[in-house]
Amino acid sequence: MTETTPASAEPPQSTEPLLTARGLTKEFVSRSPLGFRKGAVTAVKDLNLEIYPRQTYALVGESGSGKSTTGRLLQGLLTPTSGEIRLAGQVLDARSKESRPLRRDIQMIFQDPHSSLNPRRRVRHILEEALRIVGQRDRSIIRARVKDSLEAVGFSQEHAERFPHEFSGGQRQRIGIARALMVEPKVLICDEPVSALDVSIQAQVLNLLRQLQRERGLTYLFISHDMSVVRYLADRIGVMYQGELVEENTSEGLYTAPQHPYTQKLLASVPIQHPRQRQQRDRLPENADQV
């Protein structure tokens, strides 16, 4: 693993995209108790994405912009209303049994480290379960994989015998990552993985994610509202606004030359790094939050 330079340096066109979405649309329909259609909300509208192997693609946007829904659609937790998702060229259909083994290659990390682990089960069982679900019965393989996953996130095996409540928020998030690593996925969908963590713990988890990408060649879809974190981690960034992908560019390009007005507003809102920047700061237009 000598290649540690950020992948944005190399042209992504050199390889085939690993995960693609074409015309992805998701409507949430609310129904009356008798089953009649009452109304529909389009959470994601005609979204096209290409995520290249070993890269980090970040989706940014405010709450309600559809970025989390997109993550869940790509993972298969939600079924798209229309559109097509492909992993390494093969079509993923959330409903069909054939694409189940494919879906295994896409795992997810969740925002809230407190509710994302079952409080009544030991860490060992939480991790082993990931393999049992996919039909692995061999105890020695399971045991080896638990050890490997725990070590990958900086824990030793003795931690496996504990319950989630014995860990701090950052440690739980690392257990969540270990759980995702159990089935050796190709893609990790990280839904706001550090936004619920303390500042000093955020950096630990971000470094861990980068290290795992280097060591295991993982591809990330990183969903976040934090522009600074995304700038640090991502190779490409997609900006979502009201269910649509309004701008997409390399991390560098997006920050130096934002095109869409929403992207510009988003970047202007990022808190400054030093109080002396207060004067230079672009002030926002009045009442701009009426959206």
């Binding site: 937790l77 809230d112 509710s115 379960e129 759980r179």
Partner: peptide, 14 residues
């Protein structure tokens, strides 16, 4: 409604 149930679904649990 807790996230760990969603996590199980994401893993493909029955």
């Amino acid at each position: 409604e807790q996230t760990f149930v969603e996590a199980l679904k994401a893993q493909g649990a029955s």
